[in-house]
């Protein structure tokens, strides 16, 4: 059963419509990716799903319940967690404090210690730097911290916006290995990426967004072989 289902969602800012009826669904325990070029509405779709902006029409179902009008805060409590684009860390606070802030919601608090061990095991670099201010970390470490902070929130669904942006390929691969571990633990992941090749390589299922709509979808290993995808997004 789909854990998150988005049906014919339209949305935008003010008078400007960005999404023109986007539909996608996330299977429980799978790694799904949403790819597409710049400005096709990926981030708007995420903001709508998270409740940072309201859908104009359509339905968003989380675990079978309609969540169209719930705030980002309530959705975080329910287990829908966003790792935002640009990391949005608390740069003046330590790595450890950032992780503490990640575990703010009621479901996550009792499991703080267990989740802390989990993320330190996944990203040993963060453990070494736990007392360092987040702003002093390198770009890759900051992205690790952003993902780790998301995990601290005890997500049922972890949505990651532009994981690879601005990172060296070797770091991106390292982070992707981390995502595979999370999927093994049963966390449903939605990866939103401009780096189409990388995203399709590790995902189970993929959606291609263009002009505010889902243009194509299918198992990731089929999409990556698709002629249209290859010519449009992979430059092959």
């Amino acid at each position: 059963m789909a854990l998150l289902e988005i049906k014919d969602v339209t949305s935008g800012y003010g008078d400007v419509q960005i999404l023109w009826g986007a539909s996608l669904s996330l299977e429980k325990g799978k790694l799904t990716c949403l790819v597409g070029g710049n400005g096709v509405g990926k981030t708007t779709l995420l903001r709508t799903v998270m409740g940072l902006i309201r859908p104009w029409s359509g339905v968003i179902l989380f675990d079978g319940k309609e969540v169209n009008k719930l705030s980002a805060y309530t959705k975080a409590e329910m287990g829908l967690v966003l790792v935002p684009e640009g990391r949005q860390l608390f740069t003046d606070m330590t790595v450890h404090e950032n992780l503490e802030m990640g575990a703010t919601n009621q479901r996550a608090r009792p499991n703080f210690q267990r989740n802390l061990e989990r993320v330190y095991e996944m990203f040993p670099r963060l453990k070494e730097r736990s007392r360092q201010k987040a702003g002093t970390l390198s770009g890759g470490e900051q992205q690790m911290l952003a993902v780790a902070r998301g995990i601290m929130a005890e997500p049922l669904i972890l949505i990651i916006d532009e994981l690879s942006l601005g990172l060296a390929p070797v770091l991106v691969l390292q982070l992707f290995e981390g995502l595979k571990l999370l999927r093994q633990e049963g966390i449903t992941i939605l990866l939103v990426e401009q780096n189409v090749q990388l995203a399709l390589t590790i995902s189970d299922y993929g959606y291609v967004l263009a002009e505010g709509k889902v243009k194509m979808e299918g198992p990731a290993r089929k999409l990556i072989k698709d002629k249209h995808v290859r010519s449009t997004y992979l430059g092959l």
């Binding site: 805060y73 949005q88 608390f90 740069t91 606070m93 404090e97 802030m101 703010t104």
Partner: peptide
């Protein structure tokens, strides 16, 4: 107190974490 520092540092992110 840490919530205060988090809100001071990045209010949007703090709200996303569920800080009131």
């Amino acid at each position: 107190g840490k919530f205060i520092r988090a809100v001071a540092n990045n209010r949007a992110a703090a709200e996303l974490m569920g800080v009131p």
